[in-house]
Amino acid sequence: MAHPILFISVILQALGLPVPHTLVGETLLAKLVSPHLTYTWLVMAILIIMPKLTLGKLELVPNGRQNFWEVCVGGLETYMTDQMGPQRAAMMFPMIATFAFYILVANLMGLMPGFMSPTSNLNITLGMTLIVWVTHHILGLKYHGIKYINHFTGPMPALIPLMLPIEIISNLARVLSLSIRLFGNIMAKETLLAILFMLYGAFFGPLPILCLGVLVSVVQTMVFVLLSILYCQGAMEHAH
């Protein structure tokens, strides 16, 4: 299959850096300049620089640019407040909002030629999922202490030997399903776009998939964020 042209990799290659042609390179330097990592840094740069440029100073009566960010941030915060109450929402908001903006920008970036989605690499999504997974267990331990084990023991004491492995497997499956869902959807989108572009890119062949790609990007961001909110909220609730 033809290798997609990624402009950061092209620039880095012109600078003489060993950009790997496989997914992950061998040496440390090759790992550092592998495409998904450089595009992660591009997303980080976009997310740091763009609000700096568009938000000069906050005003009481927002103008157009501030309105945009208020809708983005405010909508997410209202949703979280509805789900978990104002105090917990304020506690969880920085992490969840970071994930939301990062995944959204990373997903949508892959639709442009010359860019790729960092989320089409399993390492990135698995890393984010592990952060969410560890965080929801830490929250559970923080709110319930040792009684957090009640979340895993099922309804009655006689069933504990049966329910404990089942609940632990069910909990570990969250890591797999959350990471593979995001990775699979975005990688499918990228691969399909590359193939269609190779086959009949001159006749606007990838156009329907580009439209679907916008939908998939937004929906997968929403699913990841909502499921992380639900997992964290479930760990903070009492066991039923």
Partner: peptide, 18 residues
């Protein structure tokens, strides 16, 4: 949608984890 749209993948990843 986010809860019920992920039922299938969660079920099959439970089996794989097991």
């Amino acid at each position: 949608m986010s809860v019920f749209g992920t039922v299938g993948l969660h079920m099959c990843s439970s089996i794989f984890i097991g």
